Amino acid sequence: MRVIGITGWSGAGKTTLIKRIIPRLIGRGLSVSTVKHAHHGFDVDHPGKDSYAHRVAGATEVLVSSPLRVALMQELRGAPEPELHALLTRLSPVDLVLVEGFKREPHPKLEVHRGVVGKPYLFPGDADIVAIASDGEVADATVAEAAITVLPLDDVQAIVDVLVDRAIPLDEAIARGRAAAAAAGAA
């Protein structure tokens, strides 16, 4: 299993790009999973469903299984949100894991940037950004100095090539996350 992230500001087109990338990766014969960070509360369960009733009654975990899919819901009940490296250990084996969001977690990332969003580039402050996919020209001396690959946002094939090339093994991604968590705890 290998891991690489897709990062950028809200509205930059991360999800849109991932929806275009996944079929290309599958077309190469790769199995793909994703981990998506939500900055707000979300719910996949709704009132009236038995699984919802189980959670509301106090169950910490509710596992729902059907012939089509399996979903595990875990209530944190005041516990801290798991870090990326902990979440990655929960996935079933696949060839490639695409991580959307998790800007501050240490793993290689492709930054998605669209000028219309009006936000600055993330790469100058994030050494884990290995490439940029942008809808405009990236005119920044920092890019040249850092030797960051810059791709047109609409060149999905080139983006897929970079993602496959720059992904790191799962155990390395987990080790990076643990080291960062330990360093943050020591600070």
Rank of each mutant, 00 (worst) to 15 (best):
T89H: 12
I159C: 12
V97D: 12
L153Y: 13
R24I: 09
G177L: 09
S33A: 11
V116S: 15
D50K: 03
P106Q: 00
D50T: 01
H37M: 09
R55W: 06
I26W: 08
P67N: 00
L98Y: 01
M1Q: 09
P124W: 03
A59S: 13
R69C: 10
I4K: 02
E105M: 03
I22M: 05
V164K: 07
E75Y: 10
K109D: 03
A146H: 11
A127N: 10
A53F: 08
A158D: 13
G101W: 01
I129G: 02
P67F: 00
Y121Q: 09
L91Q: 05
I159P: 08
R176D: 13
V117T: 14
V97Y: 01
P120S: 15
L170Y: 03
D128H: 08
A131H: 12
R77V: 08
A183V: 01
A181Q: 07
A127M: 09
T34E: 05
A175H: 10
A86H: 02
V32H: 06
G58D: 09
A38F: 12
E100G: 03
I174R: 02
V94C: 13
V62H: 05
L84W: 03
L91H: 01
K103S: 00
V3F: 01
R20G: 01
H113L: 15
T149D: 13
A71P: 02
E100H: 04
K103G: 01
A141R: 10
T149M: 10
D140L: 14
K109Q: 08
E61I: 13
A133C: 11
P108N: 03
R90G: 11
L72F: 03
I159D: 09
F42N: 12
A187H: 14
V32C: 12
G118V: 11
A71H: 12
R176M: 07
V3C: 07
L122N: 10
V143D: 05
A173K: 00
R166E: 10
V130C: 04
V44K: 10
S134D: 14
Q157K: 14
E137F: 10
L30F: 04
A158H: 02
G27N: 14
A38C: 09
A182T: 08
G8V: 01
H40P: 07
E81G: 13
I6Q: 06
D161P: 10
W9N: 13
V44I: 15
V70N: 15
E111K: 13
G115A: 15
D140V: 03
V160C: 14
E137D: 15
D165W: 10
D135F: 06
A180T: 02
G185I: 02
R114K: 14
R2H: 15
G58V: 11
D45G: 11
L88G: 06
R55V: 06
P124G: 02
